[in-house]
Simulated scan of single mutants.
Amino acid sequence: MVLQRLISPLIIIVLVCNLIITQMVSAIDGAEVFDILKGEITQTIPNSNSLQNQVKEWLSAITGIVESMHIEPSEGIAIKIPLTPPYKLTSNWMNGTVTEIVLFISTSETYYPTLLIFTKENGFIGVHFESSSLRSFLQEYKIDNPNLNLITAPIS
């Protein structure tokens, strides 16, 4: 009876530790490409200096805050990219330590490429950015789709 009371909490602790370790390993492994319409991960991109530098380039090219509460488009792709190590960003739009970004790109003409930025300090923020390198990024990782809207959002 006493042994059963001890085993249940131990099992929960082991499961939680396993989940945490699994999440840490997947963050180090790289990025995940998610097809929003299908609702599934379609590709993984290995972590590399090139990938990390691409994200830093986008972060340095922020053009404004997303004004809509609906950050995620109804179709297109989302690419979740952890920053390893986290990146300290100081700009006109935000200051903080970026731990992860999610890049949203839609096929809709009215949805512009958007970064959802997660920070240690402030939680998250949605921003638009200059997307001149987006097509080459998508081509490099073989996720390019000519129907994706890669036009930079108008600055308001």
Rank of each mutant, 00 (worst) to 15 (best):
E40M: 12
S74T: 07
I65K: 15
W93D: 03
T110Q: 08
S108K: 06
S108Q: 11
T42N: 04
I105A: 11
W93G: 04
Q54G: 00
T42H: 04
L51T: 05
N122W: 04
L51P: 04
G39L: 01
P113V: 10
S108D: 15
I65V: 15
L115F: 03
F124K: 14
F129I: 01
T110R: 05
S48P: 05
W93H: 15
S48G: 06
I36K: 01
Y87T: 10
V33M: 11
H70G: 00
F104V: 06
V102L: 05
P82N: 09
I28D: 11
P73K: 10
G123T: 01
S68M: 04
I79H: 12
K88A: 07
L116H: 07
I41C: 03
G30E: 04
S106V: 08
V55P: 04
S60N: 14
S50M: 07
L103F: 02
K88C: 00
V66I: 12
T63W: 01
V66H: 15
M69E: 13
Y112F: 15
E130D: 14
M24Y: 03
S106A: 13
I81D: 03
I41P: 00
A27L: 09
T114L: 14
T99Q: 10
D29N: 14
I20F: 14
T44K: 11
D35W: 02
N53T: 07
A78I: 02
F129C: 01
I21F: 13
N47Q: 13
H70Q: 14
T99R: 11
L19W: 10
T84A: 10
Q23N: 15
F124N: 13
N47V: 02
G126L: 10
V25D: 08
S48E: 06
I81S: 01
A27R: 13
E72D: 00
L89V: 10
E40Q: 15
S48R: 03
Q43A: 11
G96A: 05
L89T: 05
S26E: 08
H70D: 15
M69S: 13
L51I: 09
S131F: 12
L51Q: 10
M69I: 07
E57N: 09
